[in-house]
């Protein structure tokens, strides 16, 4: 179980997170939505300490970090219990697809090369990249890169998988293949936190939706409640705004 208590984060004078409390149970798929600049991504990045919160408590199962006085070893532990899929993939550019997946297994988790390779090939086959394991990231399309990103995160077998707008940088035609894989993982019972702009996807894949605005959680609940019958005015306004976006025909 993941517990975030009273998380605050400031960038200079910009108060991005204003006291976030959030609980994620094992097996939950939580989607975080909200307007740009609402702090969704920052919150997600605080969970694995890529962003250092100014105040608050982060705990995953029995590991608790007081962000006022964090212990280096605990931060490493936190990162080893989480894994992240980045908006811009962040693949290791100097490593092949397979090495991207096995690197964390070998270096951080101290698995044997043989075992890491088995896990890597297995997962890359699942995401449909068995024929690309020796390619370098620069030789892949955006959709393929993000599937490597997902494979890399999934291979670590983390307590929670963090997705930071995994489809925002993709061409529209590639969004589908990536969402399909996330959908599959979600049905496998992996705990996930997803920041996304894909409202339909959020509705379908998650069992809880969190709406954030201006550094605060405005409301949260099952997708139907939040996305179809929102209680708060701000949620309604946001949903109306993105639902209203016309389908362009060119």
């Amino acid at each position: 179980m993941i517990l975030l208590k009273h998380i605050h984060k400031k960038f200079k004078n910009n108060h991005v997170l204003k006291g976030i409390d959030l609980e994620v149970s094992k097996g939950d798929v939580v989607t975080i939505i909200g307007p740009s600049g609402s702090g969704k991504t920052t919150l997600l990045r605080c969970v694995n300490y890529l962003e250092k919160p100014d105040e608050g408590i982060i705990s995953i199962n029995d590991l608790t970090i007081q962000t006022k006085k964090p212990v280096k070893k605990d931060i490493l532990q936190l990162r080893r219990r989480t894994a992240m899929v980045f908006q811009h993939y962040n693949l290791f550019e100097n490593k092949t697809v397979l090495e991207n997946v096995t690197e964390g297994l070998i270096i951080a988790q101290k698995k044997s090369k043989k075992m890491a390779r088995e896990i890597g090939v297995d997962i890359l086959t699942k995401v449909g990249l068995a024929d690309k394991i020796n390619a370098y990231p620069q030789q892949l399309s955006g959709g393929q890169k993000q599937r490597v990103g997902i494979a890399r995160a999934l291979a670590l077998n983390p307590d929670v998988l963090l997705f930071d707008e995994p489809t925002s940088a993709l061409d529209p035609e590639m969004v589908g293949e990536v969402l399909e894989i996330i959908r599959e993982i979600a049905s496998g019972g992996v705990t996930m936190m997803i920041v996304t702009h894909e409202i339909d996807f959020a509705c379908e894949v998650s069992n809880r939706v969190v709406f954030m605005d201006d550094g605060q959680i405005i409301e949260q609940g099952p997708p139907d409640d939040i996305l179809i019958h929102p209680k708060q005015e701000r949620t309604r306004k946001f949903l109306k705004r993105i639902m209203k976006e016309p389908d362009f025909t060119i």
Binding site: N48, Y49, L50, L76, R79, R80, T82, A83, M84, F86, H88, N90, L91, F92, E93, N94, K95, E103, G104, I107, A108, Q109, R152, A153, L156
Partner: peptide, 28 residues
């Protein structure tokens, strides 16, 4: 910085990220 973040996200320490990921690329 994205290469460091990727390395941290898979559980590497700064030194590991430096030697395994960043310096090899910086060298080239």
């Amino acid at each position: 910085e994205d290469q460091f973040e990727a390395a941290y996200s898979v559980g590497m320490t700064y030194t590991q990220a430096l030697w395994r990921v960043v310096l090899p690329q910086a060298f080239v």
